[in-house]
Design a protein around this nucleic acid. Structure first.
Lengths: 232, 232
DNA sequence: AGAACATATTATCAAGTTATAACCACTTAA
DNA sequence: TTAAGTGGTTATAACTTGATAATATGTTCT
């Protein structure tokens, strides 16, 4: 059973969300006011809180920050209309897990909610997969906290995309990611580009990482499907 | 191959869309009338439906709602001139996936279409992998989530078709699949080829999987009928 | 049991598909 | 103004695939 709290003053959107999320396994509770929503969130336990940024009473970001300050770790999905505030939402000072800009497509919204719920369920199950700060595989050391990669005791200068690709795949050794999945996870669901862009980045990453790029040791190809990180 | 249905009474716009989406991998079918478009959408399967809001005959939102009511989950991109109706378009009561307001730039339009197609492809990829993530039979481990197959503790490098064949049959141990069924399920209903193509693939799969291909342990032959995966 | 037939297996191959590597053009940051 | 990062392009290389043919195995009939 899943319970979701929606804090959103626009009743139309709140209802839209409820209709789309509610089923026999999921109940949705609606609050149309910020302060009321905050109290509800502290009083009961939810699997997910969907939070509008612009609210009467307590503002969305304020609620988010205060919930985190109260040690409530429930995942929070932010709703926002203005794309220029995204930076702040994602900042640590608020503590939201994800955001979506209005107006949004139902399909995208559902996908996002599903993803958050799955992620938090996974976290709860296996606390040891929360993101190990340092991964060591053969001669490779990936420090996700410092965003530093070492190979054979040499520091590798990876670009942001290269690092994210490597880190994502290395966190799930042996799992094959399709190009579409990589685009989705690293470039974002709204990236408007081609799958072969991934090839270029993998190619450059291999050039920095692999001794013999033709016979890679770390980043392997799953032919016809995508890429994967080597297993222990 | 991608097929797109355009339901739009303004022939100029319909043609514009066709020209810009059509290539050697994509066919576009045009309907200039709502009712006609609805029938077409229920009769054939498309990867995307582009739907004008204002139409003679059946209105766009009506079509959208009725398609969803008929359990047709094809992604729908709405074309609209009035931005104030957006909320309704995105509601579940209609069930559209995205919208774009006229007039739109070709580039933005193409980007939007590409994004929807990629997203729905991802959805499809993920939903059919929901099954049981890991199957274990004797020395064989099939992990459908990681897309990984292990035999005697080492990874087998299977091609896409090989993996799909194995996964399909292993999900129903003991069930005999005829060559025609395998072709249909894995190659698709529109595959135009011979049944012995299956033999080749089974043969290659056995070569990778079986110690003694002449006396297979996992993929067994049902003489005169087809193939089956061994039972526990 | 053995001949005649049907079906399955294996090996091989050409055509098509997919991946790689080396570039290029554009943008952004230093 | 350079340098670095990124998305995309192209030519080439590698692999997959569907098909064919040769061989082997199972089935049926006498």
């Amino acid at each position: 059973m899943t319970t979701i709290l929606v804090i959103e003053d626009d009743r139309h959107i709140a209802e839209l969300i409820s209709i789309n999320l509610e089923d026999d396994q999921t109940t949705v509770l609606r609050c149309y006011h910020g302060t009321e929503g905050f109290i509800e969130a502290t009083k009961n336990e939810f699997d997910l809180i969907i939070l509008d940024l612009m609210l009467p009473g307590k503002k969305g970001m304020e609620i988010c920050r205060d919930l985190r300050a109260s040690n409530i770790i429930t995942p929070i999905l932010m709703l926002t209309s203005k794309s220029d505030e995204i930076d702040k939402i994602l900042g640590l000072e608020t503590g939201a897990d994800d955001y979506i800009t209005k107006p949004f497509s139902i399909r995208e919204f559902q996908a996002r909610v599903k993803a958050i719920l799955r992620r938090s369920k996974l976290d709860a199950e296996q606390t040891d997969t929360i993101a190990i700060p340092e991964l060591r595989i053969k001669k490779l050391i990936i420090n996700q906290e410092l965003r530093k990669v070492e190979h054979n005791s040499h520091r590798l200068n990876l670009t942001p995309k290269e690092f994210e690709l490597l880190a994502l795949m290395a966190n799930n050794p042996g799992k094959t990611y399709s190009r579409a999945q990589l685009l989705h996870k690293i470039w974002g669901y709204d990236f408007e580009g081609y799958e072969h862009t991934v090839n270029s980045h993998i190619n450059r990453l291999r050039a920095k990482l692999e001794k013999d790029a033709g016979n890679p040791e770390y980043i392997l190809t799953t032919w016809g499907v995508g890429y994967r990180f080597t297993e222990a």
